[in-house]
């Protein structure tokens, strides 16, 4: 069973988002990292880039494949996780904490109607 924190929102494409104080922190879920296995490289968006919800904005590479990451909400890239770029295995070891991908500056209250809560995401990955 994967870890699915209650305080996060989830995209069907396996990103999580934490919305607080006008920013959104984004990463990949425990289920996603387990499916990908050994993450060997991450390509993150540049700071200042403006993203719309659903934009293809990062790439996570395992030994076997490259997978795209989509912005769960729109905003401007505020900060990227430099530690993750240097140590991509953080995405495996600490997907909800040290393995975060990037932070967005939100433009007002984001639309989260398309996102799932922990219960909904658990159902989607068949762990309900």
């Amino acid at each position: 069973m994967s870890t699915i924190p209650d305080n996060l929102k989830y995209a069907k494409s396996h990103e999580w988002v934490r919305i607080e104080d006008g920013t959104a922190t984004i990463g990949i879920t425990d289920h996603a990292q387990a499916e990908l296995t050994d993450v060997v490289f991450v390509e993150l968006p540049e700071a200042g880039r403006v993203l719309a919800a659903g934009d293809n904005c990062a790439v996570v590479e395992s030994v076997k494949t490259a997978s795209d990451l989509y912005a769960p909400v729109g905003g401007t890239v505020l900060e990227i996780n430099a530690a993750l770029a240097d140590t991509p295995e953080l995405a495996n070891d600490s997907p909800f904490d040290e393995g975060w991908f990037f932070k967005l500056q939100l433009n007002g209250e984001p639309d989260t109607a398309h996102l799932l809560d922990a219960v909904g995401y658990a159902a989607q990955i068949g762990e309900a």
């Binding site: 060997v40 490289f41 390509e43 790439v59 590479e61 030994v63 490259a66």
Partner: peptide, 13 residues
């Protein structure tokens, strides 16, 4: 030929 990437970069495919 066989090759190695020089620095930190995405894996070739």
């Amino acid at each position: 030929v066989a090759f190695k990437m020089n620095g930190k970069c995405p894996p070739p495919r």
